[in-house]
Design a protein around this nucleic acid. Structure first.
Lengths: 218, 218
DNA sequence: ATTTAAATACATTCATGCATGAATATCAAT
DNA sequence: ATTGATATTCATGCATGAATGTATTTAAAT
């Protein structure tokens, strides 16, 4: 074939990306050839190489279109800070809703989560995953500490305990649901977050005293 | 080279398996060739084909040596049933301890979790993952229901809510820790489980009334 | 006329799986 | 204990196929 208009070229690019999502989602990232993706997109391999350097580059372009859960959960630097817990709740529910309702988002996320190999050869996405995870923890910690300062959480709550539990529970529910979406994620998620926040306020098992823990200075 | 004694042959097999763990853990399952694994094991590809049919077969042999978290979490059909909550607690802590202390176990688990592609071409491991997940949910539900019957949890606790939250939280913490093992999993895990069980007993957000939910018949 | 999207053709690389062969372990028979 | 036959582990070499990346060509848009 021959040259298309600029708009057509962009559309071709999108078609390739969509085809790649479908193929990667069904067969993983490593196995399928570019031929397979090209054919599903209705073009030849030449077109793919015209838009992307190689499969890794195509994969990166795909993942750039979505936010990872940790990125979505902990984006802005908690504006204002008047209601940290409300902020946390809002963001969690937003994430649950987005994952549940946006099919395309979900499929890309499923590819990253369980249909690609997080190794150095996939440097870009590996980096994003680990860094967003770490950054998520950091932001979550700030939220929790702000909540303590604001009086929304008890003084003697141990962030070293609360943060990983909170993070693991929310992200864990999300991942679980992706594996087996047998329930209403938004409803269960809402209840989870509410119950967890309540738990942070009241549970003696999350206090600093329990086991020896580096006592927060100041 | 030539034939070895039976024991030597078994040792060769083990060496190949260990080499495969190392290679898969570092570079993922799909990329490395059998040559790479053989060389690390100090043999040639011929030896690998002598012990395993192909890479997929080798990978299966690897994963057969460990239990998945859900398998470990929900093995026996809850013997006796006098103390369901204690049973649940015990199993969770056992899992946390095992993952934290057994390096080999952990590496294989990390391969399954984030260094292989869970697609139909990897049928065996995909099946194990999805089935153990489902079975884990089923067993967890039985435990929760038994706990309600035994009076350890409130009558109006909604298992449809409690089970996914419990499962997601525990498995989520485990997965989180594997990504970034920056804390003591056993300590945080213990506190998490204790706080969660407490939460199940007291939180109004996990009751049946909240939103319309299929009322458990009888 | 020139530029560019996309097809086509081609060379190269590489992993796989198998067939073959070497050399020792194992065991039965003496 | 020695010998001989057999089985078995592992190395080697080869044929095959497939995917990749690039170079070249085509033909339309500007």
């Amino acid at each position: 074939m021959a040259r298309r208009r600029k708009e057509d070229a962009l559309e071709t690019r999108e078609r390739i990306l969509d085809a790649a999502i479908e193929v990667f989602h069904k067969r993983g990232v490593s196995r399928p050839s570019l031929t397979e993706i090209a054919e599903l997109a209705g073009v030849t391999r030449g077109a793919v190489y015209g838009h992307f350097q190689n499969k890794a580059d195509l994969f990166i372009a795909l993942t750039d279109r979505i936010q990872l859960p940790d990125e979505s959960l902990c984006q802005a630097p908690l504006h204002g800070g008047c209601d940290p817990l409300g902020e946390l709740r809002k963001r969690s529910l937003f994430l649950f809703r987005e994952v549940m309702n946006d099919e395309q988002y979900r499929r890309v996320f499923e590819i990253i989560l369980m249909r690609c190999e997080l190794v150095t050869e996939n440097g870009e996405i590996l980096k994003r995953c680990t860094e967003s995870h770490a950054e998520g923890d950091r932001r979550l910690r700030k939220l929790v500490e702000a909540a303590i300062t604001a009086g929304q959480l008890p003084e003697d709550l141990d962030p070293n305990i609360a943060v990983p539990i909170l993070h693991g529970s929310v992200i864990g529910l999300l991942n679980d649901w992706l594996i087996n979406p047998a329930y209403d994620l938004v409803e269960v998620g809402t209840r989870q977050v509410d119950a967890l926040l309540e738990m942070l306020q009241s549970s003696p098992h999350l206090k600093r005293s329990g086991t020896l823990q580096a006592p927060a200075s100041a």
